[in-house]
């Protein structure tokens, strides 16, 4: 009884400690689970439903040489820090939203099968075709939303990517390898 009374008298301290622990280890694990941009490929996907962890695990099987990790995030992950989003290696965005991030895309016109979404957008790859319902990584990415009409999704390479050497002339082609896997996987 006395122990319980003592605990209740300090309840606010325990609550504060819990918040501190969550913040501290959340911050530490962000560093522990991260690595330099040259060692990772970051994929941002503009959908509400995205099994990012499962997709990440699938992509990390047979990871391109030199990479330590592949990160997959929905766009909402970067809601407090847009620079994280704008530095991504690969973007998967809907046709209607592609223009919003136009300046972050690298043109893939020199690559086979690349297509232009519209004349004012860099060339990318159609990863989801709304007319057929076919798309890459469909079991992981929720391309169709019940609240919005179905539309095509496109994959673009990030203009700041260090892993699109065939397009930028620097770094490696790890992003291209990951993109190819995304386009081909179910």
């Amino acid at each position: 009884m006395r122990v319980l009374k003592n605990i209740l008298s300090q309840f606010h301290i325990y609550l504060l400690w819990l918040l501190l622990a969550a913040l501290l280890w959340g911050w530490i694990f962000t560093f522990v689970t991260d690595t330099a941009p040259a060692k990772k490929v970051v994929v941002f996907i503009e959908t509400d439903v995205c099994q990012d962890m499962a997709l990440r695990l699938a992509l990390e099987e047979d990871m391109p040489e030199g990479l330590r990790m592949i990160q997959v995030h929905p766009f909402s992950y970067a809601m407090f820090d847009e620079s994280t989003l704008l530095n991504a290696d690969i973007f998967i965005v809907s046709a209607s939203k592609a223009a919003e991030y136009r300046d972050s895309f690298l043109s893939a016109a020199s690559l086979p099968a690349a297509e232009s979404v519209s004349p004012d957008l860099p060339a990318g790859f159609r990863i989801y075709d709304a007319s057929t319902g076919e798309g890459g990584a469909r079991q992981y990415i929720g391309y169709v939303s019940p609240d919005a009409p179905a539309e095509d999704y496109y994959l673009f390479f990030g203009v700041k990517s260090l892993h699109a050497a065939s397009l930028t002339g620097k770094g490696d082609d790890a992003a291209l390898a990951v993109a190819e896997k995304l386009l081909q996987m179910n």
């Binding site: 003592n6 605990i7 300090q10 301290i13 325990y14 400690w17 819990l18 622990a21 969550a22 501290l24 280890w25 959340g26 530490i28 694990f29 522990v32 689970t33 962890m53 990440r56 695990l57 990390e60 990790m69």
Partner: peptide
């Protein structure tokens, strides 16, 4: 011991252990 598959589990474990130990120590 953190890897891609268990990162969330390890983080929650660290938070749980740190919190409980802290509570006991504060008491």
């Amino acid at each position: 011991l953190t890897g891609t598959a268990n990162a969330m589990r390890m983080e929650l474990s660290a938070i749980a252990v740190f919190t409980l130990a802290g509570w006991v120590d504060i008491y």
